[in-house]
Design a binder for these strands. Structure first.
Length: 548
RNA sequence: GGGCCCGUAGCUCAAUGGAUAGAGUACGUGGCUUCGAACCACGGGAUCCGGGUUCGAUUCCUGGCGGGCCCA
């Protein structure tokens, strides 16, 4: 973890320096990756940031600061650069040590030492209605949430993934009635799917499994339909490599009296009030919401909002320090409401985050595909995963910020899948696999032999150094993902790392019996790249194949 | 009508307020008797428009234009 160690030493030096200079002490130092034309590994823009308040020329600050960094263990050279950067080149030995750290414990490289003190996190995502199969619209949220969970876990945070199941209410009655209609249809009886019911073919398939349905009551149809649909959803998510620690059922809230309890709690806190016979929550005080919201209608029926608050109260009560909801943009209007509700329950506002991802614009050629479960015109997650592949699909999502409005052409998706950048990254992994096979064949290094450390001194071409520096950034990238609460910086990083490997491969012959020591050193480098690519792809739910 | 998000290369997208705005793909030209050419090298191509803040704006503020979503 060369960069976090470096940041620590630099901050120490910089604070001592600032104190002596009478400048404001830096709280933190941002390490940046300089652009390609700059001959440096690390860059600090800090002098420019303080130049104004210090009333000094940023370049002079940078010069002076750079001087104070001389002698830091990991630094080969340090210099100031206009308009006010401090640029740093790392020593070969620091890079070598980092490379060894990767290859020794690749599965924990990137772990944050300070993770122990952070609160436990609950991330809720997908939470699809149990009234039909998962459609492609769910895929983005599923990939987003699952990758985020994996990355936070990799950093060492305590994270749990949860999906909420809306298995109560009118929609379930409609589902049961729709299934009943399909069943009667199967028996040749006249049947009508109710108004607002579900017309998808999946209910025909479920109806075909029913035995002795003539004795069933409404609840039996409800439960049978939900059970089958949930199993399908869970199977699809498994295929998509999305894992949940908990499935939380709404019915459990009603059964346990949690809904009633949260209402009493809100009244007790003086957050809920009665007006026109209904019970309201004062959400309008929350920025973004323009009016208060009804919790219980004047006829005594709760709105869908109330059980949702009850559900979120259980998240607080279960002891999570940070509560994250991941919703599609079609629910963004819900954010201020739930934020207000969490605040009303006394949960610290900075410990609740609702993340919104933009919906995927799906089309075939020129034609937009609308997702409507009720009409039955849906593109299932499973279909796309089967046709395009889980790897290509997940990497495609992982590359984009959740805020991007993506276009996804189903017609081109399959064609494009062979051009998907994921293969560019996976190819690196497969290529390295071949290199090791060749090395074993040539007797350079048995695959089980311990890797040599000191030989890394032979790694001094620009291509090799670029790879080592890039790998040193991996732990920082994971932290960026945490800061932005998005996996997309990692996916883009993997692309860049892969982009550095291919030219290395062209210029640097790895397996060469005439230069066994260089070969071993390069094999060590390859091991590091392979590990970082494999771990990185793994965090995105993408496989790292030995062969393609 | 109000709110949230977005507008970057032909296309799909990157870029904690930083240096010469990057990739993939498409297009053009080269490169396999040597570890996988699913690759590499080179080339042309881009910040929606107008103001403002800043030493510095794709990024922040503001007014338009265009699109997605939610609400009334």
């Amino acid at each position: 973890m060369i960069l976090s160690a470096l940041r620590k030493s630099l901050l120490e030096k910089a604070r001592a320096w600032a104190k002596a200079e009478g400048l404001p002490l830096p709280e933190n130092l941002t390490l940046g990756a300089p652009p390609a034309h700059v001959a440096a590994d690390i860059s600090l823009p800090w002098p420019m940031a303080v130049a104004k308040s210090a009333r000094k020329n940023p370049l002079e600050i940078a010069r002076s600061l750079a001087k104070s960094f001389e002698g830091v263990l990991e630094i080969e050279s340090v210099y100031a650069c206009a308009p006010g950067f401090v640029n740093i080149k790392l020593t070969d030995s620091a890079l070598r040590a980092n490379l060894k750290a990767i290859t020794l414990t690749p599965e924990t490289y990137g772990h944050d030492e300070a993770a122990g003190s952070t609160p436990s996190v609950l991330i809720e995502f997908v939470s699809a209605n149990p009234t039909g199969p998962l459609h492609f619209g769910h895929a983005r949220g599923a990939a987003f949430g699952d990758s985020l969970v994996r990355i936070l876990r990799r950093l060492g945070r305590k994270v749990e993934a949860e999906s909420y199941i809306n298995d109560a209410g009118r929609q379930i009655e409609l589902l049961g009635l729709s299934l009943m209609a399909r069943y009667q249809e199967r028996l040749g009886q006249p049947a009508q799917i109710p108004e607002g019911g579900y017309h998808g073919n999946y209910l025909k398939a479920i109806a075909a499994e029913i035995k002795n349905g003539e004795k069933w009551k409404a609840d039996d149809f409800n439960n049978f339909a939900m059970d089958r649909i949930l199993k399908e959803q869970q199977r699809d998510l498994q295929t998509f490599r999305v894992h949940f620690d908990h499935w939380y059922h709404e019915t459990g809230l009603h059964g346990s009296g949690a809904v009633q309890k949260v209402l009493e709690r809100l009244k007790e806190y003086d957050m809920a009030y009665e007006k026109d016979g209904a019970i309201w929550l004062g959400t309008a005080s929350q920025e973004g919401d323009d009016k208060d919201r009804v919790l219980v209608r004047s006829d005594g029926r709760p709105t869908y909002f109330l059980p949702d608050i009850a559900y979120h109260l259980t998240k607080i009560e279960r002891g999570y320090g940070l509560i994250i909801d991941i919703w599609g943009a079609d629910h963004h209007g819900y954010v201020p409401r739930m934020t207000a509700a969490m605040a009303a329950l006394g949960h610290p506002p900075q410990q609740y985050k609702a993340l919104i991802y933009q919906l995927v614009h799906l089309f075939r050629g020129e034609e937009t595909v609308r997702m409507s479960k009720r009409s039955g015109d849906i593109v299932e997650l499973r279909e796309v995963a089967d046709e395009v592949g889980v790897d290509a699909c997940r990497f495609f999502f992982a590359l984009r910020t959740p805020n991007s409005h993506m276009n996804f052409d189903l017609e081109l998706a399959k064609k494009q899948s062979s051009e998907n950048p994921v293969f560019y990254c996976q190819y690196v992994h497969a290529r390295i696999g071949s290199i090791f096979k060749e090395a074993a064949k040539q007797g350079i290094l048995g695959t089980d032999e311990p890797l040599p450390g000191p030989n890394a001194r032979f790694l001094n071409s620009p291509e090799e150094k670029a790879l080592m520096v890039k790998m040193a950034w991996f732990p920082e990238l994971l932290k960026s993902c945490e800061k932005e609460l998005s996996p997309h910086p990692l996916a883009n990083y993997i692309m860049e790392l892969a982009g550095l490997f291919h030219p290395f491969y062209e210029k640097c012959r790895v397996v060469d019996p005439a230069n066994a020591e260089v070969s071993r050193a390069r094999l060590l480098l390859c091991t590091g790249v392979r590990d970082v690519i494999r771990e990185g792809l793994g965090l995105l739910g993408v496989s790292a194949p030995e062969q393609m």
